[in-house]
Write a protein that binds this DNA or RNA. Structure first.
Length: 716
DNA sequence: GCATCCCATGTACCT
DNA sequence: ACAGGTACATGGGATGCG
C-alpha cells in the first residue's frame, strides 16, 4: 500500500470497473482501478406486483442484488417511498435490463436510469469532484481510498498540461473523403508543423504527443471530424492507438479505448473541443474549465461537452442523491393557465427607454450584483417553492436551487475579492477572472433553466417569480433614485444609468448602497461616465433604441454596447475607427470642449478615414467581415452574403459546417450575382468595394454624431 | 423593366 | 436543449408606375 498527493485528472467507467487517473505531484500520471456496481431503482406498479417483480429480478442473471429501500423521489414531497434497489453485474447488463423493464407492466417507474455510470461512481463512491486536489491510497493498480484535500491555490489551476492539435485538410471525391495535408501542434510556446503523407503525419503526431505528454488535448471539431482522422493516420503508421501497457506509441497513455464521443477521454488523456458552451476553450483556460468541472461534478471531458442544463442537472442530482433521493426520469409539468394569466406573468426583465439624441455628462451606471442569484437566495425561491418563503433560514428547509447556488455564489464573491487584490495583467489575476466568469455563467444559467421544459425539475412559476422580483427591484430603485433628486437616464434589467449635475462618485456609491438597503439586493457603482449618449432607432428616429449606448468613463475608457464597434460582423477598420471617433469626440473635460475641439477632431478623423478607404490604401485584413453560418448551406432560403462566401470555400475543397464563422470581404456588394459580391478569406483576386466600406465608416460615424445630437459632418 | 414598399429571414447583441 | 428582449441589414415577393 502506498500513498500520494496530486490532482484528480479523469474518471471513467468500463464494465464493472471505474478507471481513475491522478496526476501526482511528481508529475507522473497514475492509472488506478476501482470496483463499480451499476444500480437503479424500480417502483412496482402496485403492491401486489411487488413480489412478482422481486422474484423476477432475483432470477435474472443480469442482476447481482435486489433489496427494498425507502427513498425520496419528489423534491416537493417529504415522504419516502418504498423502492427496489437493483444492482447489475455490469454496464451492459444494466442497459439490457433497464430496456427490458421499461415496458414491463410490473414496473410503475424507474429511477436513476438516465444518469451516467461515471456520475453514479463519482457521486456515491469516489465523492470527489474531478480536478480536485486529492490524497490517494493505492494497492498496486487498485485504488484503495481517496480523500479531497484543500486546494492551496485560490487562483492558479492544477498543473494540467495542454496540447493543441489543429489539422488542415481538403475534401476529395466530391466531399466524401477528407485528406489531411498538414497538422499544426501548439504546446506552451512551442509550435510544430507536421507535413507529409498520411503515414508520416500519423507518425509525427504520435511523436509529438509522446514528447509533450499532455493531460488535455484541444482539438477543433474533435469528435465528429478530426479525432477519427487522427486515429486513422496513427493506425496507418502501424502504431495502434491502444497497444502495450501505456509505454507504446499512440495518442493515449494506456490500453483503455474509451469512446471519445461518449467520455471525452482516451486512455489517460482528455480530449476536448476548442469551443465550450459556445465560448472558445482558450478563453475558459484551465482555470475556468476546472471551476465548471467542480461545479458540475463531472469528468473534464463531459464538462467540456455538456451544455448548461445537463451540467446543472448533474450538480442537482449529486446534491439530491447524497440526501437520499432517487432521481426520476422526468418531472417537468406545467399547470394550464388562461392566456391572460400567461401574458401577465410571462415576461422578462424591465427596460426603461433612454433619453437619447443628447450628450449626458457625469452619469453613473449602477448595477444590482448577481441580481437573479441574489433574488433566488434572498427570497428562497426554488422549483418546489415558486413563491418563496422569505429569507432562507439555517434550520428551515432550503429549496434545491438556493441549496445548489448558495456556496457557489459565495465562492464567486470571494474570488472577485481576490481578483481585485491581484496586480492587473498578472497570470493569477487572469486565472481568477476565468474562474469568476465560469461561475457567473453557472449562476445565471440556473435562473435560465429554472422554468425550462428540458429541466427535469423545472417550474415555470418559479421562473416568472424571479422575473417579477427583478422588475419590482428596478421600479423600487427608480422611485428611490428620483426621490433623491437624480434622473434615471436609462435602465435595463439590473443596470441603471443615473445622473445629477453636481453628484460625485461618492454620492453615486452612497445612492447605490441605499438602493441595496431598500431592495435587500446588493447594488454597486459599476461605471462612471464623463459623457454618454444613446442612439435613436435607425428605422424610426422618433423613438430611442434600447440596449445600445456609448460613452467615455473618467478613466478615459470607451464603454459601448450594441453599436457597430461591439459587433463581430463589423470589420476591424470600422470598429477601430468608431472607437477612436468616440474618444476624439467625448474624451473631453467639459461640454464646451466636446462641442469645439471634440467635434472638430472627430470630423477630421472621419474625413481622413473616408479618404483613405477611397484611395484603396487600406490593409485588406482590416476589412474582413466575419459572420457565423448558423445552418448547413443547403438549408438557406435567402442568398445571404456569408453563404456566398461559404460556397466559395466549398468550391475550394474547404469544409464548412453550421456554426462556422465565415470570413470575407466585400468586393462588389451591388453585383446582381450574389456569388460575386464577396470574396471568402483565402480566395485570391480582386480588390475591395470602396463604396461599401466608405458607407460603413459613414454609418458608424452617423451613429455617434446623431446619438450625441450633433450634425453629421459631410464627407466628400 | 424598374423603383418602392413590406415582410420574412437571418444574425448579433444586452443583461 | 439557457432566458427574454432587442436592433438592424437584406433578400425577395408584391405592388405600382411608365
Amino acid at each position: 500500500m502506498s500513498e500520494l498527493e496530486g490532482w484528480l485528472l479523469d474518471v471513467y467507467v468500463q464494465g464493472d470497473r471505474a478507471i481513475v487517473w491522478v496526476k501526482g505531484d511528481d508529475g507522473r500520471n497514475l492509472r488506478m482501478e476501482d470496483r463499480y456496481v451499476p444500480w437503479f431503482y424500480a417502483k412496482p406498479s402496485g403492491w401486489s406486483e411487488e413480489w412478482q417483480l422481486l422474484s423476477m429480478l432475483y432470477e435474472c442473471p443480469a442482476v447481482s442484488s435486489v433489496r427494498a429501500e425507502e427513498k425520496f423521489v419528489d423534491i416537493s414531497s417529504p415522504v419516502r417511498e418504498r423502492l427496489l434497489r437493483v444492482e447489475t453485474r455490469g454496464t451492459k447488463e444494466f442497459r439490457q435490463l433497464v430496456k427490458g423493464l421499461e415496458g414491463n407492466g410490473l414496473v410503475g417507474s424507474l429511477y436513476d436510469v438516465d444518469i451516467r455510470h461515471v456520475q453514479k461512481y463519482l457521486f456515491t463512491r469516489l465523492c470527489v469532484e474531478p480536478t480536485s486536489r486529492v490524497r490517494v491510497g493505492r494497492d498496486g493498480d487498485r485504488l484503495a481510498w481517496m480523500t479531497k484535500v484543500d486546494d492551496p491555490d485560490r487562483a492558479r489551476p492544477p498543473p494540467f498540461s495542454m496540447l493543441r492539435i489543429e489539422p488542415e485538410y481538403v475534401l476529395e471525391e466530391g466531399g466524401r473523403r477528407r485528406r489531411m495535408t498538414r497538422l499544426v501542434t501548439a504546446h506552451g510556446d512551442g509550435v510544430e508543423v507536421i507535413e507529409g503523407t498520411k503515414k508520416e503525419i500519423g507518425y509525427g503526431i504520435a511523436q509529438v504527443v509522446r514528447e509533450a505528454d499532455p493531460d488535455i488535448i484541444v482539438i477543433p471539431r474533435c469528435d465528429e471530424v478530426v479525432f477519427p482522422m487522427l486515429k486513422d493516420a496513427v493506425e496507418e503508421a502501424e502504431m495502434k492507438m491502444n497497444v502495450g501497457s501505456g509505454l507504446g506509441p499512440g495518442l493515449g497513455r494506456s490500453v483503455d479505448a474509451e469512446q471519445v464521443k461518449a467520455q471525452g477521454s482516451w486512455g489517460g488523456r482528455i480530449l476536448i473541443e476548442d469551443s465550450m458552451v459556445g465560448h472558445p476553450t482558450e478563453l475558459w483556460g484551465v482555470a475556468g474549465l476546472v471551476e465548471r468541472t467542480r461545479f458540475s461534478f463531472l469528468p473534464i471531458g463531459l464538462t467540456s461537452r455538456w451544455l448548461s442544463n445537463r451540467s446543472i442537472d448533474s450538480r442537482n442530482c449529486y446534491e439530491l442523491i447524497r440526501r437520499g433521493y432517487a432521481i426520476p426520469k422526468e418531472g417537468y409539468f406545467e399547470v394550464a393557465r388562461d392566456l391572460e394569466q400567461v401574458m401577465l406573468r410571462d415576461r422578462g426583465g424591465i427596460s426603461l427607454t433612454p433619453i437619447s439624441e443628447t450628450l449626458h455628462h457625469n452619469v453613473a451606471a449602477i448595477d444590482f450584483d448577481s441580481q437573479y442569484p441574489n433574488i433566488i437566495l434572498r427570497s428562497g425561491l426554488s422549483y418546489e417553492r415558486p413563491m418563496g418563503e422569505g429569507e432562507v433560514s439555517a434550520e428551515g428547509g432550503v429549496g434545491l436551487i438556493p441549496l445548489v447556488m448558495g456556496p457557489w455564489l459565495k465562492r464567486r464573491m470571494e474570488l472577485k475579492r481576490v481578483k481585485k487584490s491581484l496586480p492587473k495583467g498578472s497570470e493569477e489575476r487572469l486565472f481568477c477572472e476565468q474562474r469568476v466568469d465560469a461561475l457567473k455563467l453557472m449562476l445565471v444559467t440556473q435562473y435560465g433553466i429554472s422554468g425550462c421544459c428540458w429541466n427535469r425539475f423545472g417550474n415555470v412559476v418559479t421562473f416568472e417569480e424571479i422575473n417579477r422580483k427583478s422588475r419590482e427591484a428596478m421600479m423600487t430603485a427608480k422611485s428611490l433614485i428620483e426621490s433623491r433628486g437624480y434622473e434615471v437616464v436609462y435602465a435595463d434589467v439590473d443596470s441603471c444609468f443615473i445622473k445629477r449635475n453636481d453628484a460625485t462618485r461618492e454620492d453615486y456609491e452612497e445612492l447605490a448602497a441605499e438602493v441595496s438597503r431598500i431592495t435587500g439586493l446588493p447594488m454597486s457603482l459599476d461605471k462612471h461616465f464623463k459623457f454618454i449618449a444613446f442612439p435613436k432607432l435607425k428605422g424610426d428616429p422618433s423613438s430611442s433604441a434600447l440596449k445600445r449606448y456609448f460613452g467615455v468613463t473618467y478613466d478615459g475608457e470607451v464603454e459601448a454596447r450594441g453599436i457597430e464597434l461591439r459587433r463581430e460582423d463589423s470589420p476591424v477598420l470600422v470598429r477601430e475607427f468608431q472607437k477612436r471617433l468616440i474618444l476624439e469626440l467625448m474624451d473631453r473635460d467639459t461640454m464646451d470642449d466636446v462641442l469645439t475641439y471634440g467635434v472638430a477632431e472627430a470630423a477630421r478623423l472621419l474625413q481622413d478615414t473616408i479618404r483613405q478607404v477611397r484611395s484603396g490604401n487600406v490593409d485588406v485584413d482590416s476589412l474582413l467581415v466575419s459572420r457565423s453560418l448558423r445552418k448547413e448551406p443547403d438549408e438557406y432560403r435567402n442568398r445571404v452574403v456569408h453563404l456566398s462566401a461559404a460556397m466559395q470555400m466549398l468550391g475550394q475543397g474547404r469544409e464548412v459546417f453550421a456554426g462556422d464563422s465565415i470570413k470575407f470581404i466585400f468586393t462588389d456588394s451591388e453585383n446582381r450575382n450574389p456569388m460575386c459580391r464577396v470574396r471568402a478569406e483565402g480566395v485570391t483576386g480582386g480588390s475591395y468595394d470602396r463604396e461599401v466600406y466608405s458607407k460603413m465608416i459613414g454609418d458608424a460615424a452617423g451613429t455617434v454624431f446623431r446619438a450625441a445630437g450633433l450634425p453629421v459632418p459631410k464627407a466628400e
